[in-house]
């Protein structure tokens, strides 16, 4: 009875666009959904450092190097903001990290693809960040206060990320024949995985129901995907690259681009762990975490000793 009344009040707040804060009552499913979604988002930022990190040491100019490094550093920061938001839901960062490492939690499967040439730094920034931004802009209005605040901060900082990537690929597309080929190849490899980042079609998406009612998610997968495609097609044309989809064409009646069938078989395989880099990414994360253990323990022990000293003094 009590819960039914609380649930009604909760829904009334959501409907009135009043943000939910950590100490407010919330349905257990709302909490669970957020824990899953925000931590998955945090894991994605952190695992997402690796494919780009793959090229820091080989960036072809000092400017390119600092830009890329600053961008990846932002991603670490965004992971940090998101873990912080997720922690307000009553689970510690350690628990979330354990879920990631034991594969109970997922991260965006786009990061299970390798970055093979420098042009991939362009494609990742332009397409992967581009897709992420479409999603994140929408999430600035999500109903959970700490998540919304993290997204506002992240969107502000991300504004240069996509430009950084587009600048790289645009420059290469106008460069030597080899560079041009690298740029087109990067687009070919990243296009389909990028548009699949928005997730399954609305009709096949199991988590959309309550997420929409509770305004965790403000737009559907298909709406967001369409937005991304509509704004990206022109960007490819301007720099003379071809999007690898023969079915892509403007639909006057819909006011949107039509596009071809996505390979959901591949998508689900990569999600389930069969992508080219799933194991590599997770192993990297586990190794860094394990190698940091003695450092964290040293810092904790030192802090403990200092506190003891103060108590005695």
């Amino acid at each position: 009875m009590e819960d039914a009344k609380k649930l009604k009040e909760f829904q009334a707040k959501i409907d009135a666009e009043i943000k939910i804060e950590p100490k407010d009552w919330m349905p257990e499913d709302y909490r669970k959904h957020l824990q899953r979604q925000i931590s998955q988002h945090a894991h994605s930022e952190v695992i997402g450092m690796q494919p780009e990190g793959n090229w820091i040491s080989r960036a072809p100019s000092l400017r390119a190097k600092v830009v890329l490094l600053a961008k990846i550093q932002d991603e670490a920061g965004h992971g940090q903001y998101l873990y912080s938001a997720a922690e307000t839901l009553g689970k510690s960062r350690d628990e979330y990290i354990e879920e990631l490492q034991t594969e109970k939690a997922k991260y965006s499967s786009i990061f299970n693809y390798p970055t093979l040439t420098w042009a991939d730094m362009g494609a990742v920034g332009w397409l992967v960040d581009g897709a992420a931004i479409v999603n994140q802009v929408s999430l600035q209005r999500t109903s959970y206060g700490p998540y919304a605040r993290a997204m506002v901060r992240i969107c502000k900082e991300e504004s240069f990320h996509q430009r950084q990537g587009y600048e790289i690929i645009a420059h290469m597309a106008q460069g030597t024949p080899e560079q041009k080929a690298m740029a087109q190849d990067a687009l070919n490899r990243f296009w389909w995985p990028s548009i699949m980042m928005f997730g399954p079609h609305d009709s096949d998406s199991p988590n959309t129901g309550n997420a929409t009612k509770w305004k965790i998610k403000r737009e559907t997968n298909d709406e967001l995907r369409q937005k991304f495609i509509d704004k990206t097609v022109g960007q490819a044309e301007i720099i003379g690259l071809t999007i690898p989809d023969p079915d892509l064409k403007w639909n006057e009646a819909r006011g949107h681009y039509d596009f071809g069938k996505m390979d959901w078989d591949e998508f689900w395989n990569v999600v389930k762990g069969n992508g080219p880099c799933n194991k590599q990414r997770l192993d990297h994360h586990k190794k860094a975490h394990a190698e940091g253990k003695w450092v964290r323990e040293a810092a904790l022990t030192y802090a403990h000793k200092e506190k003891q000293k103060q108590l005695v003094a």
């Binding site: 940090q80 810092a299 200092e306």
Partner: peptide, 22 residues
């Protein structure tokens, strides 16, 4: 925002690197 640290100097330095990069 918030962060993790084991002591106050670390908290201050982490805050500087996390929240005042721009």
């Amino acid at each position: 925002g918030s962060l993790h640290a084991t002591d106050k100097e670390m908290a201050l330095q982490n805050a500087r690197d996390l929240y005042t990069r721009r």
